[in-house]
Nucleic acid binder design. Structure first.
Lengths: 387, 387
DNA sequence: TTTTAGCACTCAGGACCAATGAGTGCTAAA
DNA sequence: TTTAGCACTCATTGGTCCTGAGTGCTAAAA
């Protein structure tokens, strides 16, 4: 579709625009990138690229700027992602070490370090736990009338919730009920647990039904809410450093949008089902053999190289492809992380359309890998590296 | 210091500027506020007010704008705070109901509702728990090598933390240790608990010392971190709606500052010790007898009416009085909330200097009251335990 | 057929300027 | 002490001109 020279020119335009945020002209291009042709030739090529929809002109007498389509082509076939430099990797690893499977902590740290290291806002979605198996349910009496329900899921995830219980229940009765629930439900997935299954599990606990029902209901809610979707967004203010957001209204639109975290969370969690034509997975390789774990992971994710059929590795949305108002001038790079073998959640970075895709992808890839490792270690019941 | 007419004029200027964000001139003033004098008279008064430092002129041919000192005078003696309208109160109450003493949830909700209802960014600091008494310590085996430490403090506050323990410990041993710790430490304040007291409490647990030590250390850390200061900041983006932040650099400075939540948290937690000359408590009354609980609370807080000596009711900082760069164009209204009888934490609102102080104060007052009520209810439950 | 030099053309952005008008300070009369 | 009147200030607005980066097109060169 594009001959080599056009590709080079497109790549140069995008690279330069990413670096400077200024429309790039033919003359500047040849001098900066040492093209072996004259500016006039480049000019002709650029005119063609514009006609094909890859470039745009803010106004007649300005240089060119990549269009969504231009970025798309850049990301799909021109971008070469380098492996993360060792010192960067080490910083990330150091920051994320030692989360002990505190889910919240780990995911929050992922968001935080991503934003910190890339300079862009970041997002991290808590894992989908519907398919997790219940391992333990304990109800701990805090004081008459209040109890702490602790839910332990497969993969070592622990969640808890304070609930109200009938005042007259004592610790022993509570224990009996929670044992009964645990025994009856352990091994089930969160998805399969209903109020009925909870009730059935505890049906022969020695308690008047009305009391029992309240406790069971609270236990049920506590178990179910272990799956609540949570999102962590970090560094939103960082986008204001980029000239495309110097306009206060754009900035405000953008910040308003990101503040509605429920919507963002929903959006992110539904990403997989999106039209693959609008949002193809990025399947480039880092080209660094040292990054073997990462590569292994990609291969295991179902044939990333075969394009649409497998599990996408990086999901990249550019400009209008993001269907959220307020983020029209942004790009969105995300990937999934796993707990054990199941895709669990998603982390990502938001930036201006002219974001440093290469840097971002390598960072996200590494953070994803680090999360996966932590969960794998957790599942194995392994100890901390540090000892 | 100021005669009545000057007071009226100052109040009118501030009110108008708060409403419009435009410098206010003498003519507009007489026509809007129906002063019984001519614009020339007002002009003279305004000139004097400027000389005295209460007003400022952006440039010679513009109207006047309040200075920090002008806002100060306004807040200290001109502002009349009205009680919160019933429908507003009801909305807040509804939103904050039913937090069950989930500390985090309650405080987060406070921040969220404050920002939502006032239209300004809000802050809420988690309570200081150093003086709380330890009531329970439970260690729950999650799987070999990992345990959940649940700490219950007076006032029904529950905190927990996942910790690593020696693999070979079984549930029963863990239980023994935690019982010993609980027995030895319950009733002590967090402040008084040290590694030594923890160790002493558990000294005759039947375990080899090396194993024991690790567990004790983790328990100690878990107990201590119950007191970690946390801050919730909500609605930061809302400030971008106000013209004083249309300048992107100011907006960025401001957002950057608020993003450093550790610094903000430290700042807020140290507020009490600040120079009372720079930041006097606001002791105005709502003038609404229906708001009796709130008033009762104020009186009980140590003689707010006597000025500097007592516990301040509302702490208001204006412009330069906030000693944080990036918030020079802001004002900061905060108050404390209590757990039982002790001042525990602080909530507040940040806005432009020309914020709607009256509205903000009545909202903060009501939210504070709602938090206090929730804790009081919680504490009453706790009294039952001890009987 | 492709590339390049040359040239006329476009247009955003900056500098400059004049007109406008809201608001002031001052003076003198009420 | 208040007020009417008036001259003055100065940010803002809108218009005009200029500059220069960058373009498209044409015709010659490769």
């Amino acid at each position: 579709m594009l001959d080599d020279r056009k590709k080079n020119i497109l790549k140069a335009v995008v690279d330069d625009y990413i670096a400077t945020a200024e429309p790039v002209g033919s003359k500047a291009l040849v001098s900066k990138f040492h093209f072996p042709v004259s500016s006039a030739t480049v000019r002709n090529e650029m005119a063609e690229l514009e006609e094909m929809g890859f470039l745009e002109q803010p106004h007649t007498s300005a240089g060119r700027v990549p269009s969504d389509k231009g970025y798309r082509a850049y990301v799909d076939s021109l971008l070469q992602v380098e492996a993360l430099p060792d010192d960067e990797a080490e910083k990330i690893r150091a920051y994320m070490r030692d989360s002990l499977g505190e889910l919240t902590g780990l995911i929050r740290k992922a968001a935080s370090v991503l934003s910190e290291r890339t300079g862009y806002p970041s997002l991290a979605l808590s894992p989908q736990l519907r398919r997790s198996h219940l391992q333990q349910v304990k109800m701990l009496m805090i004081e008459p009338g209040r109890a702490l329900v602790v839910v332990v899921l497969s993969a070592g995830v622990v969640k808890d919730r304070l609930v109200r219980i009938p005042d007259i229940l004592d610790a022993k009765q509570l224990m009996q009920i929670s044992s009964a629930i645990e025994e009856g439900l352990s091994g089930m997935t969160l998805d399969d647990i209903t109020l009925v299954t909870v009730a059935t599990a505890a049906k022969n606990a020695p308690l008047p039904e009305s009391l029992l029902n309240q406790v069971l209901y609270e236990a049920y809610v506590a178990i179910k809410q272990a799956d609540n979707l949570e999102i962590y967004i970090d560094g939103t203010h960082k986008l204001l450093s980029y000239p495309e957001f110097y306009d206060i209204h754009k900035a405000k639109d953008y910040l308003d949008t990101l503040a509605r975290d429920g919507i963002i969370a929903g959006y992110m969690s539904e990403m997989k089902e999106q039209d693959p034509d609008v949002c193809r997975p990025f399947t480039g390789h880092t080209g660094n053999p040292a990054d073997s774990e990462d590569n292994a992971d990609r291969q295991s994710s179902g044939g990333a190289s075969s394009g649409h059929t497998g599990q996408p590795t990086y999901m990249i949305r550019i400009g209008q492809e993001i269907m959220l108002d307020g983020l029209k001038d942004c790009s969105f790079v995300t990937t999934t992380y796993k707990m054990g073998d199941v895709v669990a959640g998603r982390i990502g970075v938001i930036g201006p359309r002219r974001m440093a895709y290469g840097r971002v992808i390598s960072h996200i890839g590494f953070v994803k890998q680090t999360i996966n490792d932590q969960f794998r270690r957790l599942a194995r019941g392994e100890d901390n590296v540090e000892e």
